[in-house]
Every structure is written in structure tokens, then in C-alpha cells.
Amino acid sequence: MRTHGWSGATPADDDEAIARILEAARRAVDRSGGDISITAVARDLGVTRQTVYRYFPTVEALLGATAIAQVDPFLDLLAAHLGGIRDPTEAVVEGIAYTLEQIPEEKYLSMVLAPGRASAFSAGVTSDTALAFGRSILERFGVDWVEAGLAGANLDELVEHMLRIVQSFVIDPGRPRRSGAELRSYLRKWVAPAVDRMRSPAGAH
């Protein structure tokens, strides 16, 4: 890590440098929404643009990482909302529905999931960013995935499947848009059977 700049307070290591860049980007987002520049972030930190680019090669990469770093409050809400659900299939249905309903209300969640340059989906639902975010959602569920037979590769496929469902609803929410009981009924009809088929006999209904 180079030590030039940083307004005289050089980070101890790359992890601290990244954390400080993300915090500066968060401040920029809070000031102006998703329309930020590497130049503005670098100026805030007292470094050159090249320093920021060393850690985040594009504005999209910086915005995506910033959004991901700020969605913990939503994940806490999701965990509380799903706290009493132990059945994997019902947890998946409710997790998808609740996430879709919260996108318009949560600024950083919207940045992660809604179409746009900061979206975790900008590189597709199988990108490392998207899959990491999907796993962070499943980890908040009160479900024993191993007991349900959905550990390892099966859990990775479940993450991908959920992200594909969320992506399709984000891109085209339907006409009219489904919400509430109607959305959950649709997901139970078409998504729940796929989850049930992935579960081991011991963990299935």
C-alpha cells in the first residue's frame, strides 16, 4: 500500500484504506445519491484518483461495494421479520417477498438490487458480489440449512435461484404489481416447489 496523501493520516493497511474509501463514498452518496465520482471521493480523502482506483477500478465497483457495506440494517430487519420461521421453504418465500417489498424503502438495498450502475446484478446474478449478498441474506434466516439438506452446493444453487427470482421481479414487477398476500401466494405456488425438491428426504415435509 502506498502512503501518499490521506490528509496526513496514512491507513495502517489495505483493509483500513478500503474502509475509509467506503466511508467517504457513503458520505458522497448521502449528499448526492448514487451520482458520485472517484474524483470527489479522492478529494474527500486527500488522495489521488489513482489511489482509489487501485482498490476500486470503476465507479460502479465502488458504488456496489458501498451499498453492500451499508445494507446491514436491512439484514437485521429481515432477521427480526423472519425470526420465528424455521421451515426453509416458507423462509425462502417470505424472505423474497419481504426483500422485494423493502426495496423502495431502503436506499442502499435499492442500490444493491434495483437496475442501475451500482447494482449487484450489473455483472449478473452469478457474480461474486450478487452471490455474496444472497448468502448474507440466507445467513440471517433462522433455518438449519444442513438439517434441511441445503448445505454446500445446494445452498449455493438456492442463493442463485432466489437472486434470479428477485431480479425478475425487480426488472418487471408485473402488471399489476404483486404485493402482500398475492405476492406470497404466487411465490408459494411457483417457487416453493423448487425449494422442496432441493431438500433432503430427512429435512423435507
Rank of each mutant, 00 (worst) to 15 (best):
H4R: 12
S7I: 02
G8Y: 08
G8I: 04
A9S: 12
T10P: 08
I18A: 06
A24E: 12
A24W: 09
R26D: 15
R27P: 05
R27C: 13
A28M: 11
V29T: 14
V29A: 07
S32D: 14
S37E: 12
T39L: 13
T39G: 10
V41R: 04
R43Y: 06
L45C: 11
G46S: 13
V47I: 14
R49T: 13
Q50E: 14
Q50Y: 05
R54P: 01
Y55K: 11
F56W: 04
V59Q: 14
V59H: 02
L62V: 12
L63N: 09
G64D: 07
A67C: 15
I68G: 07
V71Q: 06
V71Y: 06
D72F: 06
F74H: 02
F74P: 00
F74T: 01
D76C: 09
A79I: 01
A80T: 15
H81R: 15
H81K: 15
L82D: 01
L82K: 01
L82F: 05
L82W: 01
I85M: 05
R86H: 11
T89H: 03
E90V: 06
E90Y: 03
V92Y: 00
G95N: 07
A97Q: 04
E101N: 07
Q102F: 03
P104A: 14
E105T: 09
E106L: 09
L109Y: 12
S110Q: 14
M111H: 06
M111D: 03
L113Q: 10
A118C: 08
S119N: 13
A120Y: 09
F121S: 10
S122A: 15
G124D: 02
V125R: 04
V125E: 04
T129Y: 07
T129Q: 14
L131R: 13
A132N: 14
A132F: 04
F133V: 03
G134R: 00
S136T: 07
I137L: 13
V143C: 07
V143H: 04
D144V: 06
D144Y: 07
D144M: 10
V146S: 12
E147A: 15
E147D: 12
A148V: 06
G149R: 11
L150K: 06
A151E: 15
G152N: 12
G152C: 13
A153R: 13
V159A: 03
E160Y: 03
L163A: 01
R164N: 00
I165M: 08
S168C: 04
F169D: 02
D172F: 05
P173V: 02
P173L: 01
P173Q: 04
G174L: 05
G174F: 02
R177T: 11
A181P: 01
A181Y: 02
E182I: 04
L183Q: 08
Y186L: 07
Y186T: 04
L187K: 00
K189S: 01
W190C: 11
V191L: 01
A192E: 05
A194M: 12
D196W: 03
D196M: 09
D196I: 06
P201E: 08
P201F: 09
A204E: 06
